[in-house]
Nucleic acid binder design. Sequence first.
RNA 1: GGCCACGUGGCGGAGAGGCUACGCAGCGGACUGCAAAUCCGUGUACUCCGGUUCGAUUCCGGACGUGGCCUCCA
Length: 477
Amino acid sequence: MRTIELTNSLTRAKEIFTPADPKRVTMYVCGPTVYNYAHIGNARPPVVFDVLFRLLRRTYGEEHVIYARNFTDIDDRIIARMSETGERLEEITNKYADIYEADMAALGVLPPTLAPRATAHVSEMIALIETLIAKGAAYQAQSGVYFSVAADANYGKLSRRDLDDMRVSARVEGEDDKRAPADFALWKAAKPGEPAWDAPFGRGRPGWHIECSAMIEKTLGRTIDIHGGGIDLLFPHHENEIAQSECAHGAPLARVWLHNGFLTMDAEKMSKSVGNVLLAHELLQRWPGEVLRLALLSAHYRAPLDWTEDLLKQADATLKGLYGAVDRLNDVSPEGDVEPSDDFLDALCDDLNTPMAMAALSTLATDANKAKSESEKATAKARLLKAGEMLGLLQRDPDIVFGRKVNASLNATLGNLQLHATATVDWPAEKIDALVSARFAARRAKNFAEADRIREELTEMGVIVMDGPEGSTWRRA
RNA sequence: GGCCACGUGGCGGAGAGGCUACGCAGCGGACUGCAAAUCCGUGUACUCCGGUUCGAUUCCGGACGUGGCCUCCA
């Protein structure tokens, strides 16, 4: 079996990945808070860890990998949204969870094995908090229950932070009764009009970090193989998860911690507070999800990635080139039992080096373009598609990609639906076919003036003609 | 202030102590009636200054620059 290496944030080193139980490989990734549309930066972890999910499933077998990505469906921002719109909690969270799932599907993200919701695990959270209180790691105050950072000798081991070095923590409003500034809320005492649950330590709602600890324990176990998320979650979120879970259980929470870098706009972090966000949902109106996905995978997951219009144009051109190779072999049925190239697999296994994997994918596309014999073609096509599948790419019908056919099921996975829909209505495939045939006839008759005229007409429709010895093919730009 | 990343050709972006990354764009060639697509070829790239070394863009130190976390944040 090929060895996978991953950079573990806990050790800051690239390590050989060995699951505790190869029959049950567990991964948890922090999912969205469902109160709003996700921006494209929010889409980086689901896409990156989707590639890892695919690699793990290939390595250990589909049924042996359990991947959980949560929905945070109780939180300050959701409550704020409730008072803004007057909607009920579930109305908001269900709506945005649905949108999130649709957007992720459009980006080619496989559904995780499990998608636990915080509000469905409040009793587990309460139990965990009780354990922490009993162990003396948490205490009750007027405003809620807090984790006592002083009780945890290992606090700071993930972010390598010394509490003394930190700037004096900004005081969180309403938490004046904490014993220490770095203590964090496990449970927030109920306020009038807010969603609340009964608990032995008073009616209230969970703090942010406790949900992940509780859901990981419930759905995956006390020690999981991989825990992932954005680099900004490293502190305090993941540090606090570790503190809660490890104090309660005396066992490591996760064996490998993975963190992806940010998306930036003009070299500045894309974030809602800066206000420089592009919503995935809106980008999907303008670009195929696959183009966005390729752009997201064009840099190594730990590196920052500057999101620009030019990046998308380049990704689009690259993708069209790859699909051109698939298209060229459209009537070849791929050979069944074929693996992607070693270069490709080695790249993915080397800490998920997707740029290097893309380079290997390009080589496979060139091989496919150069293939002569039928068997060469069948093999080359199969390898290209197999490699593409591991990146979540190249799985669409080239006829649809190049606008010769419209997908009957008008769902969000199409992404470029609007784009091609207009062109397809104005200039349907039948009309283009007719023009292309007319042009072919003109060329046969050596009436090149007419042939060129028709090509010009097609160009204006956004159609590119490609002449071959036995006829012409076409695609939409 | 503490901690942490990063600085590669026109653009994006890997990488390794000496050997072509790759993609996009450009240029030249083949193919084509002309194109397109494809194939082949093509670019004195590694922020600066020291050090280690036979040899560093790659290791070490420093400078400068950019960004991130320390507060909600993917």
